[in-house]
């Protein structure tokens, strides 16, 4: 059995390896019946659905915990919450069978809230234009290659108000739009310098019948 736990990462400066290590210790403190890998150096079977970058907060992140015994969702969540640091509070828990697909495999899109310091009005205007357009090409630069992509096709929701951009974008191995690239693209269209931003990931979604569904509910 596995427990999928939705949690918040309120301190945006914690790195993802540190989040994972923190969960391992939280689980030991909670004395919940976690499962270990086989072998000479058994390790706790705990994984994060998708790491956030240092500097990004998260409002609906997921950790996947393999259990050695049956656990009841509400009691599990309560004990885990009691053992958690205040900046990583667990908010929801769902238990699933071991055969349930891995969270990473179901992940399709991620939503973000991006607070923009300057040029908010211009950026909001071009966001509308981009949303209304059919296609727009942007250049994605990764460590190994630079690739031209149709960024419009990877944007599934986009709106702007009060200096904040809200977007849901593709998040799969083949198609990923980093929030920084989205902001850069909008600034390029608007002809303004890229402002300082503060990025919060607000959700991680799978897809069911063409509808975005939070990973925990898949």
């Amino acid at each position: 059995m596995r427990a999928i736990v939705e949690f918040q990462k309120l301190d945006r400066f914690i790195g993802h390896l540190d989040v994972l290590r923190s969960f391992q210790r939280t689980i030991l403190r909670s004395r919940l019946p976690v499962a270990y890998s086989q072998g000479f150096h058994p390790h706790m079977l705990v994984s994060l659905a998708s790491p956030t970058s240092v500097g990004q907060a998260g409002l609906a992140e997921y950790v996947d915990i393999s259990l050695a015994e049956f656990a009841e969702e509400e009691a599990f969540l309560k004990r885990l919450a009691e053992a958690s640091p205040t900046v990583l509070p667990p908010v929801r828990c769902r238990t699933v069978l071991d055969s349930h697909p891995k969270l990473m495999a179901m992940l399709r899109t991620a939503s973000y809230e991006i607070a923009i310091d300057e040029h908010a009005d211009e950026i909001a205007r071009v966001a509308e234009t981009l949303w209304a357009s059919e296609a727009y090409s942007a250049v994605r630069v990764s460590k190994t290659k630079t690739r031209e992509i149709n960024i419009r096709a990877m944007i599934h929701e986009l709106s702007a108000e009060n200096g904040k951009l809200r977007a849901r974008v593709s998040f799969t191995e083949a198609e990923t739009v980093k929030p920084d690239l989205l902001v850069e693209t909008l600034c390029k269209i608007a002809g303004v310098d890229v402002p300082h931003t503060k990025i919060t990931r607000t959700g991680l979604f799978g897809e069911y019948g063409g509808v975005a569904v939070p990973l925990i509910d898949m």
């Binding site: 945006r12 400066f13 790195g15 540190d18 210790r25 939280t26 403190r29 300082h196």
Partner: peptide, 19 residues
């Protein structure tokens, strides 16, 4: 302070909030 922490090495040195 948040702006500063974005640019320094190991911001976790200054944020507190540990268990």
């Amino acid at each position: 302070i948040e702006r500063i922490l974005e640019s320094v090495t190991k911001p976790g040195r200054y944020t507190g909030g540990e268990f």
